[in-house]
Design a protein around this nucleic acid. Sequence first.
RNA 1: AGGACCGUAGCUCAGUUGGUUAGAGCGCCACGUUGACAUCGUGGAGGUCACCAGUUCGAAUCUGGUCGGUCCUACCA
Length: 953
Amino acid sequence: MDTTYQPQNIEQSWYQRWEAAGCFQPEGDGDPFAIMIPPPNVTGRLHMGHGFNNTIMDTMIRYHRMCGDPTLWQPGTDHAGIATQMIVERQLAAEGISRHELGREAFLEKVWEWKAKSGGFITSQIRRLGSSVDWSRERFTMDEGLSAAVLEAFVRLHEDGLIYRGKRLVNWDIQLQTAISDLEVDNVEQDGHIWHFRYPLAGDASTKDGKRWLVVATTRPETLLGDTAVAVHPDDERYSDLVGQSVQLPLTGRLIPIVADEHADPEKGTGCVKITPAHDFNDYEVGKRQSLMLINIFDSHARVLSRAQAFDIAGQPLPGADLDMPPALVGLDRFEARRAVVLEMEQLGLLETIEKHSNKIPKGDRSGVVIEPWLTDQWYVKASAMAEQAMGVVERGEIQFVPKQYENMYFSWMRDLQDWCISRQLWWGHRIPAWYDEDGQHYVGRSEAEVRAAHKLGDRPLRQDEDVLDTWFSSGLWTFSTLGWPQKTPELEMFHPSSVLVTGFDIIFFWVARMIMLSTQLLKNDDGTPQVPFKTVYVHGLVRDGEGQKMSKSKGNVLDPLDIIDGISLDDLIAKRTEGLMQPKLAEKITKQTRKEFPEGIAAYGTDALRFCFCSLASTGRDINFDMKRVEGYRNFCNKIWNATRFVLMNVEGQSCGQHGETDYELGLAERWIISRLQHVEQECHKQIAQYRFDLLAQSLYEFFWNEYCDWYLELAKVSLNNDSVSEARKLGTRRTLVRVLEAGLRLMHPVMPFITESIWQQVAPLAGTATDTEALTTIMRQPYPRPDTSKIDAEAEAGIEFLKQLTIAVRNIRGEMNISPARTLKVLHTGATEQQQTLLERVTPLWMAMAKLESVEPLSGTDRPFSSTQLVGQLEILIPLEGIIDMAAERGRLEKELGRLDQERKRLQGKLGNPAFADKAPAEVVAKEQAKLDDVDLRHTAIQAQIERMAH
RNA sequence: AGGACCGUAGCUCAGUUGGUUAGAGCGCCACGUUGACAUCGUGGAGGUCACCAGUUCGAAUCUGGUCGGUCCUACCA
């Protein structure tokens, strides 16, 4: 073995061997355990969030597999409709081609080409993370099978009346030329203005204060052209007599009604609101209530139409009511139109004031352009009934959120859920299975043939809907479409509902909620109740950089997990971070910042260290601030494991360590102790995995292996192995324990650190007598996860070694503080041992002498105390004679410092115990505990006081 | 505006049902290499648990408030 841990030498080959041997496929006949991977974008790249997420999932998966459960980790990717189409369009644009020139079919071919080219990238990255997914079951949302599931789901939901088509206001992305859902809109704070306009009253009406106009305020003057009413509050007395009258809409001359509607807030502005139902979501609602006409003034690029289109509130065209737009405005885009309208109004003397105002503007999360509420025909999923069902399963605990607080988030979103717009005006995606006849009637079915047959359409010309479905529609079926639904497959039977979904809170709405709705709607349990997609949702935080900033390309602080695994030079990292920026001028800043953050680039830490780090960060918080120093620390931990193994192997080489079932061994106190500690850590691991506390799992493993096994047991083992007076049976016991505890420890750590544990285990297992050769590949992956054996918990050994540790630390403390060289052996005297301590002391003295490098240990005889530095272990006082060794002043200083500490502690305890309220009301147990503390402090205090006095003479 | 979460050592974070001398890693200081490991060992320094009030014998922990931070939802005509 190398003297240091070199991850690159051990990681790559093992993954291939596992995969080739089929180790990732479900096996066994316990309780099935399944995780469906949140499908990443097929053409995407791995980021830290994936790294984190995969680590958590793989840890659970490997754990359950080792526990013997049939374990499925279902991998796959989604087609990311908008994102992928955008990439390919951009590539075409670079060649000066638009997708429309290419045509739909040729364009889709290009997309498939791109998918073929780049689609394997992310899956190879997942392999590098060590994720033990079942690749033989890999799925893609555009696969035939999953497409069939999408088709079936659409048709069934339509049959159940849960999918409908309608002309409604949608979030229209004018750049991408498609509708998007509410969730794909970001509201961005922006400085703007509010314009106050006069709308002249029609006829001879006037307001109560004698004005011949109403004043309305707006942030979007251009929508004036589409106004179809002015609203006032029903209880607003200022305008009550005007309700039912009209205003004459400037620029168009149209008469529009004054209506009474709760939407108008008398407190705000003048209390009058212009209503543009075809270009504002609130106004649309007013329009529904007041049966107003809808007037659409824009084309799909939000340019003013020459002739605005009128609809009734149901979306039926009112051709007679169409109207010409002011010629000067025709063809202007919405922002040009805004300026033009304001200018015009000003010239007409109808502009009252302009106020500065900051408000939130809806922007498309992909395109970044301002979203236009626009009237279009779209397909919708009805939310209400499904939402109720989806809330029910969570209320009843059929699905549990971990941490529980996310249930609130889920419920609050579900409670006022809008219908989900699922159609997209894209080409890349699942085409909507609807066909139209010449009259515009639509028919939904699994195929054109089915539609024709079902509706007796003969050979009438039909054309299929051009649009595709929202990617999240297919992702929403993921837990069961990947298992073969709508077929009744054995996998579906066995692994659905899946066990746990692991995801960040940021996609609870996008994905989690929709999966729950679609699964409960489409799948039923044997008793007919709705079937959930998973039983638990483990929600983790988002990985941020060391400063707590969100990682993003434009901030230039993204990290690729593979660069932490393999390392990267500063120059390469800068190149990576500044490549393909949306705003090239950021490059300089990013370069500077990266130089500062990683002056040496990033070292190669290996997958296991990174994974251990991710686990250690998986606490319950919402933000995970990633710190490279911690990865380094866990790389060092790997090195520790590596070198401890080297030590064990060196010490058992060529000698028996009980691997052939030998029974002629004896276990000493140290052996019994470490075996006992192993049972504790095993208990802890099961517990922490069960409660999803991977941070505490990591902590337990780290502490056991480093602070107990390495720091103490290995040192104690040296004492046994290097001592001629120790019997061969005891030495055998030591070697046996060294190997077996290591072997169990490797299995314990394997779910978190698959590579190092496997490569070491291959060497250790035969020595522990646990490896079997019955399988094609003998691997730690298929070994049982250690289960604690409580009969091996040994309180006596734990007390003994605990005592030894205290004795040893006491001597080390004196050495440290007195600056006594570790090379110098010391004579130690002791006095005041209780009977129990005396017994223990006798047992551990040989170990103590070796651990603390002592020349002799003897009881203090007579009343003559030599000048000594002293330490107390309970009642036992240990003395290290000072003569010729210690600086008297230093010792005095040390003692006085300790005395001061004890003084304070004594005061605190005396105060507490002297308070009758405490003594009377606190449980006797607690009082006794405090009293014992005080006794101990008193004892120490007296002893140190005495020592100081002795030094004074 | 409403809601959620958070504020613990210089940094990144643990801290179970209230009962510890408030912990870990990193960083810092001192000392230390004839072999498991300097990717190391030993010892040490470092905290008014954001602040205020309350409940309690006892609060980092429970309650209310203040301040600071993050995020979500809604609205801003």
